[in-house]
Design a protein around this nucleic acid. Sequence first.
DNA 1: GCGATTAATATGTCTGCACATAATATCCCT
DNA 2: AGGGATATTATGTGCAGACATATTAATCGC
Lengths: 231, 231
Amino acid sequence: MSDAPISWQSIRDTMMRRIRTRVYAPGALIPNETELATEFGCARATVNRALQDLAASGFLDRKRKAGTRVMAEPRRKASMDIPLIRAEVEARGQTHSYRLLLREEATPPAAVAAQLHLKGGERLLHVQSLHLADDRPHMFEDRWIVLDTVPALTDADLSQISPNEWLLREAPYTHGTIELAAACAGDAGGHLQGDPQTPALSLLRVTWMHETAITFVTQIFAPDYRLSLDL
Amino acid sequence: MSDAPISWQSIRDTMMRRIRTRVYAPGALIPNETELATEFGCARATVNRALQDLAASGFLDRKRKAGTRVMAEPRRKASMDIPLIRAEVEARGQTHSYRLLLREEATPPAAVAAQLHLKGGERLLHVQSLHLADDRPHMFEDRWIVLDTVPALTDADLSQISPNEWLLREAPYTHGTIELAAACAGDAGGHLQGDPQTPALSLLRVTWMHETAITFVTQIFAPDYRLSLDL
DNA sequence: GCGATTAATATGTCTGCACATAATATCCCT
DNA sequence: AGGGATATTATGTGCAGACATATTAATCGC
């Protein structure tokens, strides 16, 4: 007999539609939760859930007492899965393989030390490796790892498992940064096929465990590779 | 006298720490909400809030009846602000300017039509423009806009406002895709300085209003530009 | 055994209420 | 008028209970 309860998702969708169609103009204040709860015939908590979701997605800006307003310029964020190379290659139906090219303990160049905020004196592992898709070079990677942060890595057999996978499994990070730039295929030291002059996508990543650096990696992808993100 | 209530954030943090320190191993099942609520001395709803948050961040996988388990490989997501060029340039303390290079109604090449899922016969606006930072070329953009989707654009003065800003303000999109690749500076038709052979970062973006394409844009950045993301 | 029905269980979410917190508006005293 | 205390208000969150829903486990009939 009684009406079915209204879901917070349906409220979110309705409000989203109103934002899109400018029933609520950009920058404008929308009715407060109590009024909306009355309108939708539900509890205020349900409206709250819906509006929090829209705020998390960047469409609303909420402040106590000030109320909820439509973001003037929705700062949409693109999200991208952190490329776990093997999974990505295999998802395309290709065979992934991996080759360890270099493994040494060494002192890093100043540029690397700066990225990792090193004080000097840390033990660093320097690893170069090549990932292949269907036996064709896919990505060359040059990596520096702070052994003091992940001592267990000393015993890892990096000829079998890529440092990326090992670290992801064994050394969770708290945060990190990625930079995308253009490089030359030749910067991969001749390990990628084709003309060394060909432009290639390169990715630089630094990851941290709290304030302690874990690793700095430079990856250069095969020239035809494209990195996809969703909006 | 009584204990202060436990916040869902503190529960989330505690659980996060347990995941990181492997109290809950990757892939393992964690206690159910009722048990955790007892442990933390709070209502089940509070635990639910915390676990939903961790699931949304990709650390937990939850299924009804099956329970909650730690994701074997946390698929961390990198997020990046959609580059609103002007804001980005000005945030670096540089002066942003913009030049409209071309504006025409035209039939798109097949590759563009395919990206936009066009049936043929749509009116398309083709716009090329250049963004400058401190009067130096920063980014060249080649854009196709589906006028049937955003008819109001016909009256916009694109010599004053960049199509990117106009669209962001006037034509919200529901979703879209971005691809990042490497190109040559010369692909910008000589509008970027330097050797045409120099590698340059290029960004391809398609945005949609539901199933209807809005715009397809190819941007080529100055060779020294790097795109930054956070993990 | 085997397939189909049924029970059990963990998560999903709504309600109504209470109180906390942040930000603003108002009042009051000087 | 100015400045500071105070009231007001909208959101943030906690709780207990109830029911919904998805999924697995168990059971039953054949």
